[in-house]
Structure formats: structure tokens, C-alpha cells
Nucleic acid binder design. Structure first.
Lengths: 187, 187
DNA sequence: TTCACTACCTATTAATTGGTAGGGTCGTTG
DNA sequence: CAACGACCCTACCAATTAATAGGTAGTGAA
């Protein structure tokens, strides 16, 4: 069965989210899953294999998550608040967005993993952009530059905000700051 | 002399900026400085000592950097662009802001180091806030929420933007996105 | 029954990590 | 001159890392 395989991926994802990619060692995964360290190599011969599959999986799941929000019936500013809510939920669980959690150690990653991360950012921005386009068309958002640039800026803000708020300020500060940025974009 | 000591700190800072805090091992520092690994322990018995001193040093130097900009004669929006320029320069050198570079591995840090990082963020936000206050008074900036919340949001954006742009987009995307955010704050 | 395969195990490897012990070589100071 | 401390060295250590080798169950098909 690929039951164990899924379990490994779940644990690994949680570890990266919570304690960073360094703490995601085969030993830590082994402890959490309940099989020996060597057995993980049976499912993922190299660590890169694990990381790559993990990134691909997250790209899909988070993508669907964002897509669902973007396709909703709300006005654009409300959707931006919902998108921010995803990052707020992560912060509440002391979990960092994968982009933030991994990008620091970008240099230690395989170039193929970097490509996936790059692709994930692009996909996310593309999804966010749909809402900015909606806001532009319905007149609920006002911004300089293109739809893509604005989506890119907003996503980057959320990534940074999550990181900073985890160190200093917490959920409350996160929400206040998010309101500042969204209000600035709101017409 | 504390010549070697300064050299160690310089190298360590550069390593964190460029390749993250994991790559900042005593071995790497040793190679770069040109003294044996054990000799670094003479200057910094524990790694925590090195990290703490490094954080304190950076708090001062970056603080002065921001302070200088904030005290300038320009209008507030222009100062925000200058502050963003500091992060843009880092990005150009493929260096990450310390807050971004370290915060991922926050859990592995001593609580005392966390406190310094916390303090650094607070100080930075306080300095940024001066410019937001100026913008409010001279009528060049318009934002909801307090001056501090806005400064906090803007700083967080820069941290995230630098991280995201290093993976995807580069300096050009950084500047476009920064303009979106500053324009949103501009009256 | 035999063969191949999946899944897991024990045991071990080389490399790297932060850190320690102890011994030299200077220049300074009493 | 003698003592001391700053500085750097060689030579270790225990712990942890990713990864490999080789063996052992169980399962399902020919």
C-alpha cells in the first residue's frame, strides 16, 4: 500500500511548516511515522525525491484552496481577506507558508526543486490575479501597475507578514497590517 | 587585536545573508576567515554567542541605515522608496534580510536570540513609523489604522517581497510590486 | 512450489556538526 | 628573567546527517 508513503509525506510537510526544512530529517520523520529511518529510503531513495513530491503535492492542494476562494461570489476585497485568512490560519498553528519556510535554504535545494517552487509562486500569483482582475472590472479595487504585479505584491506581503508576525506581533498584528494593505488597494 | 573577531562576524553575517543560518557553520567560517575551526571557539565559545553578537551588531547598523533615510528632507513616499531600496540592494546581491533569513529557523534559536530578533523588528518598525507619521502630517500618505500598523505592514511586505523575488521575478518584479504597495499608500 | 515483488528490518558507512583538551608561540608587564 | 594572557594550533569527541548493504518476512501469480 502507499499508506505509509502518504504518512511520510504528511509528517514531512508538517515538519517543514512548523520547524523548517532543516528539522525535516529522515530521523525525525522516522520517529513520527513509526518506521525505521532506512525504511523511508525505500519509499524515497533520496531526500530530494521526498522534497520534490512534497512540493508538487502542496502546489496542487494550496492551488485548489486558493482557487476555491477566488471562484466564490464575493466582491474582490472580501476575497483578498479570505486569501489572507489562509495565511492567518497557518500563523495561528505556528506554521509557515512553504514558500517562506523553504526559500531561506533555497541554495541547498536541487535546481529541480527550485523550479517547482518557482512554478508554485507563479501559479499562486496567477490565481490571485483573477481576483485583482475582478476587482478592477467591478470597480472595487484600485491599483497602479498590472493585475499580475498587484497579485504578486499582495502574495509577497502575505508571505512576509506571516514570517514577521510569527516573531513579533502574532495574529492580531497580522490582521491589522493586512487591513492596511487591503484598504490601500480598495477603491 | 579583535581584528580576527571582526573578520569572523563579517563572514558569519555574509553567510547568513547569502546562504542561510544553517550554512553558517564554524567550518564554513573557518574556511573563509583562514583560521582553524577550534580557534573560532576562542572568540565565540558557543555558537549562540556569535549569533547574539551578530544580531545586536546588525540591529545597530541597519537601524542607523534606516534612521538616516527617515531623517532626510524628502517627502514620505520618496522615503518609502528609499527604504525599499535597501531591500532591493540586498536582493541584487542575492542576500536576504536577516529577519527573513533567520526567522525560518526560529525554533532552533536560543530564546535570548529570539528576543533580539523581536527587538530588532520593533525598532525597525518604530523607525519606519516616523516616516508614516510624516506622511500623515504633510498629507502625502493616506492609510487606515495607526501609523505603527502601517509601518509594520510595509516592513513585512519588504521582507516577503525580498524572499519571493529571489525565487521568482528578481529585481524588476520587486520594483513593480513595491510601486503597487507605495501607490496604494500614497494620497 | 517456485519466483518476483513490496515493505520493512538491522547494521553500517562517510561526512559534517558543535564542542573540548591540551599544547605551543607570541607580546606585554611586573 | 619570569609570569601571564591573547591567540592559534593539532587532535580529538559525541551526536547527527543522508545513504547503502544485506537480510527477512509476507503476498500474489505462474
Amino acid at each position: 500500500m502507499n499508506d505509509t508513503r502518504i504518512k511520510i509525506l504528511d509528517i514531512a510537510k508538517d515538519l517543514i511548516h512548523r520547524v523548517g526544512i532543516n528539522a525535516m530529517s529522515y530521523q525525525h520523520i522516522s520517529d513520527a511515522v513509526g518506521i525505521r529511518k532506512a525504511s523511508i529510503h525505500h519509499h524515497f531513495p533520496k531526500k530530494e525525491n521526498l522534497i520534490e513530491e512534497l512540493l508538487k503535492q502542496c502546489q496542487v492542494s494550496y492551488g485548489n484552496n486558493y482557487q476555491h476562494i477566488v471562484e466564490g461570489p464575493e466582491l474582490a476585497p472580501q476575497k483578498l481577506r479570505q486569501l489572507a485568512g489562509v495565511f492567518k490560519d497557518g500563523l495561528q498553528k505556528e506554521q509557515l507558508c512553504l514558500v517562506g519556510a523553504i526559500s531561506t535554504d533555497l541554495n541547498t535545494l536541487q535546481s529541480s526543486s527550485c523550479s517547482i517552487l518557482e512554478e508554485t509562486i507563479q501559479n499562486t500569483v496567477d490565481i490571485f490575479a483573477v481576483t485583482f482582475k475582478q476587482g478592477q472590472e467591478e470597480g472595487s479595487l484600485s491599483f497602479t501597475g498590472t493585475v499580475e504585479e498587484s497579485a504578486y505584491a499582495f502574495f509577497s506581503f502575505l508571505v512576509g507578514m506571516q514570517i514577521v508576525a510569527r516573531v513579533n506581533g502574532g495574529v492580531k498584528a497580522f490582521q491589522h497590517a493586512t487591513e492596511v494593505i487591503i484598504s490601500g488597494l480598495e477603491k
